[in-house]
């Protein structure tokens, strides 16, 4: 029986990923803020053929609880084979710009809590000498932009942390994977106009499953974001700032105060 721990289990990407494992003999442990939503996900996975699904409504942002929640999961599952950290919130960039408090709150949700959980889970996997830790970061962490640099900073922090963690656990049998999705059509991004580059959570989930099988360390999803981000990262600063004028990039978020958390 495969034992899977998911944090932020009611986020669209986490749900789509979990569904891909239902055909196997699998035991899930789902963590998220809302019991109501976790129950919906639990029923869904059970009806799709999962062997066992437990839910644990806990807010992963309450750092003090993290040791407890990870221990509980490890105990119930009797060791974790695969852990996916998928919680997060698209920061309200405009609001963060005028509020240090909101900025810190966003960093807590998107970076600090993720790092705290990743540390605890990685140590468990290291002890076992096997298993996979997957964390959802974002292409937004690859270069800061006026339109979403608070969210981007948090994701960049997560990506760098994961890079180092993957290095540390190299040759231990544990695989550590950073997923960097591009634009994904989920409830978190409801307020955006969807264009050509947008993709569905199911596509990202397929990519995650493949990355796990191939033991990749960093994966851009869909694949073309690797090349888009290469170009964006290589762009000289004066050019970058002209291509993405501040008034333009700020527009997509200014009218809507996005406060939608991914899980």
């Amino acid at each position: 029986m495969k034992k899977i721990l998911i944090i932020g289990a009611s986020s669209a990407i986490a749900q789509a990923t979990a569904r891909l494992y239902c055909a196997e003999d699998v035991h899930f442990y789902l963590i998220g803020r809302s019991r109501r939503r976790l129950k919906i996900v639990q029923e869904d996975l059970m009806a799709r053929g999962a062997g066992k699904v437990e839910i644990d409504p806990t807010d992963p942002v309450r750092l003090a609880d993290n040791q407890g929640v990870v221990s509980r999961a490890v105990q119930v599952l009797d060791g974790v084979d695969l852990a996916l950290i998928a919680h997060g919130e698209l920061s309200d960039q405009k609001a963060c710009e005028t509020s240090a408090e909101k900025t810190i709150r966003s960093l807590n949700i998107n970076a600090i809590s993720v790092i705290s959980l990743a540390t605890l889970i990685a140590n468990h996997l290291e002890e076992r000498g096997e298993g996979t830790l997957v964390v959802i970061s974002s292409v937004a962490g690859d270069r800061g932009r006026a339109s979403n640099y608070v969210y981007g900073a948090a994701k960049s922090c997560v990506s760098t942390f994961m890079e180092g963690l993957s290095h540390r656990l190299f040759r231990t049998g544990v695989s550590v994977i950073t997923v960097k999705p591009g634009f994904v059509d989920t409830p978190m991004t409801e307020q955006f106009e969807k264009g050509l580059l947008w993709t569905q959570p199911e596509i990202v989930a397929e990519g995650i499953k493949k990355a796990i099988e191939k033991r990749k360390s960093t994966v851009y999803l869909p694949w073309y974001w690797r090349w888009i981000m290469q170009v964006i990262q290589l762009m000289p600063d004066p050019l970058f700032k002209r291509i993405f004028p501040v008034s333009e990039v700020g527009k997509d978020q200014s009218e809507s105060h996005v406060e939608q958390r991914a899980e």
Binding site: A12, I40, V41, E43, D44, M46, A47, P187
Partner: peptide, 17 residues
Amino acid sequence: SLDHLIDFDPKTHILRC
């Protein structure tokens, strides 16, 4: 987004979704 299955009972053949 209302894409969840809710229950399946092979005895009654009923899928709730």
